[in-house]
Amino acid sequence: MNPVYYLYLAALLFTIGATGVLIRRNAIVVFMCIELMLNACNLAFVVFSRMHGNLDGQIIAFFTMVVAAAEVVVGLAIIVSLFRTRHSASVDDASLMKL
């Protein structure tokens, strides 16, 4: 099977994730879309690793997973505390950081 198809899939997943980040208001959904983008990248890394016969891409994919796990912890904590104070998980409600 041609590995290029996996790259198309990765691109598709990334696009879906990016679109979700841009158009969804719910912070949880946005968060999941970010995960989707990260995993699309992971897929691409692995595919390139396979295509070039080089293990670096697979190692970086592990790193990305570790970072993503840490990010999930911090991100969910922020979303939970945001929800506690504002009773909403909409990203548009958290728009106080402006002049």
Partner: peptide, 10 residues
């Protein structure tokens, strides 16, 4: 700088 995270993302 309108404070909307999504516009920053764009």
């Amino acid at each position: 700088q309108n404070g909307y995270a999504r516009s920053y993302a764009v």
